[in-house]
Design a protein around this nucleic acid. Sequence first.
DNA 1: CTTTTTACCGACCAAGTGGTCGGTTGGGTG
DNA 2: CACCCAACCGACCACTTGGTCGGTAAAAAG
Lengths: 205, 205
Amino acid sequence: MDKNLKRMATMHRMQVKGLELFYQNGYYNTSVDDILKSLSLSKGAFYHHFQSKEDFFISIIQNLIVQKVYAVLIEPVEKCDNPFRAIESCFENALETAEHNNMDFGFILSNFMTEFNRRNPEISKYLKDIYKVWEVNLVSIFQKAKTDGYLERHVDSEAVATYLISSYIGIRTLMVEGNCKALRYQYMQQLKAYFKSIEQSNLVS
Amino acid sequence: MDKNLKRMATMHRMQVKGLELFYQNGYYNTSVDDILKSLSLSKGAFYHHFQSKEDFFISIIQNLIVQKVYAVLIEPVEKCDNPFRAIESCFENALETAEHNNMDFGFILSNFMTEFNRRNPEISKYLKDIYKVWEVNLVSIFQKAKTDGYLERHVDSEAVATYLISSYIGIRTLMVEGNCKALRYQYMQQLKAYFKSIEQSNLVS
DNA sequence: CTTTTTACCGACCAAGTGGTCGGTTGGGTG
DNA sequence: CACCCAACCGACCACTTGGTCGGTAAAAAG
């Protein structure tokens, strides 16, 4: 039984380091050897646990990236009452983390979506599914917000979700070039201005 | 003197095809041989005209990408009177072009910015400069809009520019995954809602 | 007509790439 | 104790990469 634990531990180490390097240097620009060297493991170990580099990356998506997106962007938004305040603080936190985390190279999902687009449809599919979950989650939150009297009824929930996701992907892309603090401040300021234009003004409080 | 013309023509052919393939497959995932093969040219020809793959790409940035961004995103906005309507129709056009162009792989600038980030600081610099020009241009347009009575005076011009650029980068990233038409519609709709929240309501017309 | 310069050719190179495979080792089980 | 099998090793393979270099043909210069 101890064997199985060791197996899981080794695979997890590889996945964590793999994500780190893929995120940092890109998938195609990171070799399996790079990952193995920084873990002092051998080719044999890698191909014993994973079928191929592609299979390895898919396991990273399923085991690490999905959880990251859930933890940072989906769960924090669900529990709050006023969805706009919830999204604001969620984005504020996420951007602040990105800003202070010196190992940050942009929004993990959009980086990989860009890299795999038209080059590896299978992986693209996995990534698109994660973004889809995020989108659906936002849409249902906005639907509920209409019921709760936070969002004007005539507003298109899906359009708001799309616009939100777009701006988030974009600001994260811009932040990798530095000047993060100013960008975050400017972004949050205008996000609030945007929300004001679609928020229900007469609250039934 | 004919020689110089031929030189320019060959270099230009290489640059155009190079941009096409780099855009499609990424810089690191496109080999010099790929480009040469599709042009029926040889290694010798390539390294006779360009010092290296990197030097080649920089020449593509300076000769092709800069002009593209100017033509699509900067010039169309400058000439119009009401800046909000100008930006709306500029973005609408740009997104429609992207949509109907089945060879669309996202916003060329943000794609490459993502790919070269932390991997090649020199090229990152060139790309960042282009985006900087776009930003400065937008900011000065918003400053003028305040004078002309289109934009509320208390609004932070730089923040608006940042928010605009973010959302554009993001929507272009999303559009590569398909469903472009709906995304474009949703985006433009919410962009207008956002503009409404910062536009001067009492026009001195 | 000779000489020089230019555009271009393509075999070649060292350094990687993803992936294979025969082997070693050490804990778990009979 | 013997045996098995999973975990791991690392030399090796075919192939691709960016880049070099000696050569050629033809246009321009003398």
